[in-house]
Amino acid sequence: MAPRNRQSTPATPSLGSTTQSTSTPSRPSKSTSRSNSANATVGEAQQIIQGVWNNYLERTPQRVKLIDTFLGFLVVVAVLQFVYCIIVGNYPFNAFLSGFSATVGQFVLTCSLRMQTNPENHAEFKSISDERAFADYVFGSLLLHFFCVNFIN
């Protein structure tokens, strides 16, 4: 079964840009914890993380780094909300839910924007220019926050 015949196949990472991703600067913390378990078995984690991090610093354009910072911020906010919910309780459940899903939704929308504007993925998104991607992003965000505000009670 031909694997990934729909893939953009970025075999050689071309000039300074990351490929498809969901997140990065936020994830190092997460992937540390994940690869720690790998560490126990293999012990290469340090090296792997270092490699990823270096790659990232080297190859990511400034604009994408900005997006990534925003993603990181969203993850921090989401984690804060979640911790609050666990510690204090979820009493206004609507409020918690809409707050939390606002961050999650914004996160995935921003990820989508990041993917669509990434030159690596140009083959995938032929019909979508950067401007169009941004317009989509704004449209999606407007809808998202409309629903959240409506749901918050």
Binding site: S98, S101, G105, V108, L109, C111, S112, E124, F125, L144
Partner: peptide, 19 residues
């Protein structure tokens, strides 16, 4: 057949649709 297109369309649908 995972592709960024799938990611974009599905996550947008799910995040907004669920809300």
């Amino acid at each position: 057949r995972y592709s960024p297109r799938l990611y974009v369309s599905y996550t947008t649908w799910y995040a907004l649709g669920t809300l």
